[in-house]
Design a protein around this nucleic acid. Structure first.
Lengths: 87, 87
DNA sequence: TATATTTGCATATTATGATATGCAAATATA
DNA sequence: TATATTTGCATATCATAATATGCAAATATA
């Protein structure tokens, strides 16, 4: 089927993203956690993946300068629906 | 400053997105919560905004057929770093 | 290879997200 | 306008995310 992408799949990709971003800067889980004022375990939970909070996810995005990009994604989603609303 | 977008700002936009998507389908908080097998309060927490979990966020995206779009965003982020890694 | 560092994951505790209920305010509908 | 519906939000409880610690496995480094 076409729509077989699951929520777990997406979380797995987010886990991969976090790991890629972290490795890209040569940071250990411990170092990233320190810089984000959270525990190493929370970084691990994101990279496992477990069900972390939006704050955890957004803090990681912010650290790697991707908060604006994500905000743009949200804005696009809103525009998609607004445009469709006209027809 | 250029980088003044805060995590709270992004959560506020996510809150707006959830509300727009829900209204677009003419659903009440109660109806959406029922369909996602969660409580109305959780939908409210997302729309306030409070600090909901990724599962809550992703369930809403999935319901409104935006899971693939978000997964694409994640893939883009990964590719961005991978490309930069080549130089 | 030997050592040091990092990661994965278990267990237990604390902080907080998810929930249920109730009710007032806001909004929609008749 | 009067009534019904929906929403916002408070309080309290339950479920679970965040945390600390410890240690084995994996990885990096000497």
């Amino acid at each position: 089927m076409l729509d077989s992408l699951t929520i777990h799949d997406v979380k797995t990709h987010l886990a991969e993203l976090s790991r890629v971003l972290r490795k890209f800067e040569g940071l250990t889980q411990d170092q990233l956690a320190d810089q984000l004022d959270m525990s190493r375990i929370t970084i691990q939970n994101l990279e496992r993946p477990k069900n972390v909070t939006l704050d955890t996810f957004l803090k990681v995005l912010q650290h790697f300068d991707m908060l604006e990009k994500f905000d743009g994604f949200v804005a696009e989603c809103i525009e998609d629906k607004d445009v469709k609303n006209l027809y």
